[in-house]
Amino acid sequence: MPSPEGSVSSKVGLTKVTIDYFRPKVKGRKIFGEGGDYLEQYGNIWRTGANSGSKITLSTDVEIAGKKVPAGEYLIFTIPGKDEWKFMLYSDLNIGGNTSAYKEENEVVRASVKPTKLAEKVETLTFNIADISEDNTTANIQMAWDDVSIKVPVKVTFDDVVMKDIAAKTKVNPNNYIAAANYYYTTGKDLNQALEWVNMYLAEGENSKQFWNVHLKAQILAKMGKKKEAIEAAKKSMELAKNFEAGDFGYIKRNEDLITSLK
């Protein structure tokens, strides 16, 4: 197949971001530039892939390039330029890669991004969910082809997702609780809320045996100044880690260090 299907998916926070696309190759052609010699001319709208274009799926509401985007599926279109690209998300999936049917009123996002010149050419068009931040709240949608790369920022929240579930009185995914607790701990937000969430997670099923998350509880307690409770949680985490057949993944030392720091 000249332009095979591709897909990339990653969790950013509690949000699953998936891009499905078709991957054209350079094959010696001039790709981006001014004039008819180039496959994708500056200033012309591009389906950002081959065949029926590229689609992004967002499992929750996010911000893309600073603009709020509801959960759902969108087509990705771009307008290449020498010093600036336009990046658009499009709500009408029915047009596929048919740029002649494009209507601006169906745009959900239009953002300007700066292209980067690549030292090493990328033969096959590639999308990636790149640069995920340490606190797991931001990332970049990256497209690279030939000697050009663009990145579009994505921002997510943890607590909004959890609180929406609670407000809707639905059964909250326990994984949302632990992710939100970790986010609150990492960013120094409401530690009482973080402790409540981690306790709710550990109370579910066999989760209390997960020594890495019991260690998170110990860290939260330590940060709250509750030394006695933190030491107790760290000792429990260490005991669980010692008895875990697959190994302790360094958590015995982590707990030892935490306990030492609290004495």
Rank of each mutant, 00 (worst) to 15 (best):
P2M: 11
S3H: 14
E5W: 05
S7P: 00
K11D: 11
K16R: 11
T18W: 05
Y21R: 07
V26R: 12
I31T: 05
E34S: 09
G35M: 08
G36F: 01
Y38M: 09
L39M: 12
Q41K: 15
W46I: 05
R47A: 07
R47W: 10
T48P: 01
G49W: 08
N51L: 13
N51C: 00
G53Q: 03
S54M: 03
K55R: 13
K55C: 08
T57L: 07
T57P: 02
A65F: 08
G66C: 06
G66F: 10
P70G: 03
E73N: 13
L75F: 07
F77A: 02
K82P: 06
K82T: 03
K82S: 13
K82A: 12
D83M: 04
W85F: 07
K86C: 01
F87W: 05
M88E: 12
L89V: 10
G97H: 06
T99Y: 04
S100I: 02
A101E: 14
Y102W: 14
E104K: 15
N106V: 10
N106D: 14
E107S: 09
V108E: 10
R110L: 13
S112W: 00
V113Y: 08
V113P: 07
P115I: 07
T116S: 13
K117N: 13
A119Y: 04
K121Q: 14
V122Y: 09
V122S: 05
E123C: 08
T124G: 08
T124D: 05
L125M: 14
T126F: 04
F127G: 06
F127H: 13
I129N: 11
A130T: 06
A130C: 07
D131G: 02
N136P: 01
A139T: 04
I141D: 07
M143N: 05
W145Y: 11
W145A: 09
S149D: 01
K151D: 09
V152K: 07
V152P: 05
K155R: 13
V156N: 07
F158W: 09
D160M: 01
D160Y: 01
V162S: 05
M163G: 00
K169W: 02
K169Y: 09
T170I: 13
K171P: 01
V172Y: 02
N175C: 00
N176E: 10
N176F: 14
N176C: 02
Y177I: 07
I178R: 14
A180H: 11
Y183D: 15
Y185M: 12
T186D: 04
G188Y: 05
V198C: 05
M200C: 00
M200T: 15
M200K: 15
Y201I: 12
Y201C: 11
A203N: 15
E204K: 15
E204H: 15
E206H: 02
S208C: 00
K209T: 14
W212I: 02
N213I: 12
N213H: 11
N213W: 10
L216G: 04
L216H: 02
K217E: 13
K217H: 07
L221S: 06
M224D: 11
G225N: 03
G225M: 11
K228H: 04
A230F: 06
E232Q: 15
A233N: 08
K236Q: 15
M238N: 14
K242S: 13
D248W: 06
N255V: 05
E256A: 03
L258S: 10
L258A: 12
L258M: 11
S261P: 08
S261W: 13
